[in-house]
């Protein structure tokens, strides 16, 4: 409760400072609108459905891209952990491509797929896939050999060993890889939506883009807020409980 009050106080003060800066005309009002103006924009956008519509479109793209990245990344990570040949080839490629900022995929995606949903999906998948591959590989390689030896003596081998020992043993790594993959997917999608202005649907990134085109700063800031809140919510609703569960099981933290 005390922590909640402190946090509320912090954000309240931020808002106050913002309002004060606006009134003191530290910046031109064109550059930074007042918090109230942003709130008005958000209310209107929520009322006429723009916001919900854009959020749904964005989340759908994100989810599809993220799932494809996960479904591709997990097996590839297992493969690179299992066979050195895969590690030297796919693993090295993953390591390299992971360092590539996802916005760098946009020109390629545009050339290959044009202004389409496919281009967007491609960018998100590229942003997610490689970090998931690497996290999975790291996780599997960090499984203490003693677990495998113990399981082996009890008659575990092959698929059973992978499903019942290696995968659960690397779960903490895989979950942090999934979390990182999620952050990357989110960033990639925003980059894609800002650059790929397609007609199949306006996502949050596109709203942001058009806010800039129209010099509607309250729209830009409002959408930025929404993006931050979505990121926070996903973390709190999905990843935090999973991490807490893992910490409790493994005894790795006092969280």
């Amino acid at each position: 409760m005390k922590r909640f009050i402190l946090a509320a106080l912090f954000f309240g003060l931020m808002l106050l400072a913002w309002e004060w800066a606006y009134r003191a005309k530290l910046w031109s009002p064109v550059l930074l609108p007042a918090p109230g103006q942003v709130a008005v924009y958000l209310k209107e956008a929520a009322a006429d459905g723009t916001l919900a519509h854009a959020t749904i479109i964005t989340m759908r793209r994100l989810l599809v891209g993220y799932l494809v990245g996960l479904i591709g990344g997990l097996p590839l990570g297992l493969l690179t952990a299992r066979w050195n040949v895969a590690r030297d080839t796919i693993g090295t490629m993953a390591l390299g491509l992971q360092t590539l900022p996802s916005v760098c995929w946009v020109p390629l995606a545009l050339l290959w797929f044009g202004q389409s949903e496919a281009a967007m999906l491609f960018v998100v998948v590229m942003g997610t896939l490689w970090s998931v591959v690497i996290a999975t590989e790291t996780g599997v390689r960090n499984v203490p050999p003693i677990y495998r030896r113990a399981a082996m003596t009890m008659g575990s081998k092959g698929l059973h060993m992978w499903l019942k020992v290696v995968l659960p043993a690397s779960l903490p790594f895989i979950v942090s890889g999934m979390k990182q993959g999620w952050a990357f997917a989110w960033r990639s999608l925003m980059a894609a939506e800002i650059f790929v202005t397609i007609l199949t649907g306006f996502g949050l990134g596109q709203l942001l883009h058009y806010g800039r085109e129209l010099s509607a700063m309250e729209q830009v800031i409002g959408i930025m807020l929404i993006i931050v809140v979505i990121g926070l919510l996903v973390d709190k609703i999905f990843f935090s409980p999973v991490e807490t569960f893992l910490h409790r099981r493994w005894g790795t933290s006092n969280a």
Binding site: M152, T153, M154, G155, A169, G251
Partner: peptide, 30 residues
């Protein structure tokens, strides 16, 4: 390796992702 000859190591090597009962069940499930 075969389950007629089971090993107990210096470290307990218990599986942290399973609770106590499930650890004991591991070999039985096979």
């Amino acid at each position: 390796p075969g389950r007629e000859r089971l090993v107990m190591f210096q470290e307990p090597a218990l599986f942290p992702w399973l609770n106590v009962l499930s650890n004991v069940l591991f070999g039985l499930n096979l």
